[in-house]
Amino acid sequence: MSDTIYKIVPASLWQAARQQGRFEGAPVDLADGFIHFSTAAQAPETAAKHFSGQTDLLLVAIDGAALGAALVYEPSRGGQLFPHLYGALPLDAVRWEKPLPLGADGRHVFPEMN
């Protein structure tokens, strides 16, 4: 498994995290008690299922290895193992952040993920 995991997040929420110096999670994360992430293979389906038609999103790449034991891969959609972070995301674990625009077909256009 790659050690890079991804978070799709509204740009305004991410801006607030930058000001705080850490990301506590989106409302769904706070409700579930962990921060939801996706692998590179899972991110497009996550975008389609949970962010359909939404604009002003960012794709944030995270160094999963930097998160230690707080990062747990757990079964979710269709039995796939999804990365979940039990705790706040320290911004020093962020590798990069890029816009996640909508294409002409209404689907999000993903940047190269590496």
Score class of each variant (00 low, 15 high):
residue 37 F to E: 15
residue 32 D to R: 13
residue 87 G to R: 02
residue 37 F to C: 15
residue 46 T to A: 15
residue 86 Y to K: 07
residue 16 A to E: 10
residue 113 M to T: 04
residue 109 V to H: 05
residue 49 K to T: 15
residue 73 Y to C: 08
residue 108 H to T: 05
residue 7 K to P: 08
residue 92 D to W: 11
residue 10 P to G: 02
residue 11 A to C: 06
residue 6 Y to A: 07
residue 105 D to T: 06
residue 111 P to H: 10
residue 31 A to W: 05
residue 5 I to W: 01
residue 37 F to W: 13
residue 106 G to M: 12
residue 73 Y to G: 09
residue 57 L to Y: 06
residue 41 A to V: 12
residue 42 Q to P: 06
residue 47 A to H: 09
residue 17 A to G: 00
residue 13 L to I: 03
residue 110 F to G: 05
residue 47 A to S: 14
residue 106 G to N: 11
residue 75 P to L: 11
residue 84 H to Y: 03
residue 72 V to T: 14
residue 90 P to M: 12
residue 77 R to Q: 11
residue 53 G to D: 13
residue 85 L to H: 03
residue 74 E to C: 01
residue 8 I to M: 10
residue 93 A to W: 08
residue 105 D to K: 02
residue 47 A to N: 11
residue 13 L to K: 03
residue 104 A to N: 06
residue 55 T to A: 14
residue 33 G to S: 03
residue 91 L to I: 13
residue 27 P to Q: 11
residue 11 A to V: 07
residue 105 D to G: 00
residue 114 N to L: 07
residue 51 F to T: 07
residue 106 G to I: 09
residue 34 F to D: 14
residue 72 V to W: 04
residue 77 R to V: 14
residue 64 G to F: 02
residue 17 A to C: 01
residue 110 F to V: 10
residue 43 A to D: 11
residue 62 I to D: 02
residue 65 A to K: 00
residue 47 A to W: 08
residue 96 W to Q: 12
residue 47 A to G: 09
residue 30 L to K: 11
residue 91 L to V: 13
residue 16 A to H: 01
residue 72 V to Y: 04
residue 79 G to M: 09
residue 52 S to P: 00
residue 19 Q to G: 14
residue 70 A to W: 03
residue 89 L to K: 02
residue 46 T to M: 15
residue 10 P to A: 05
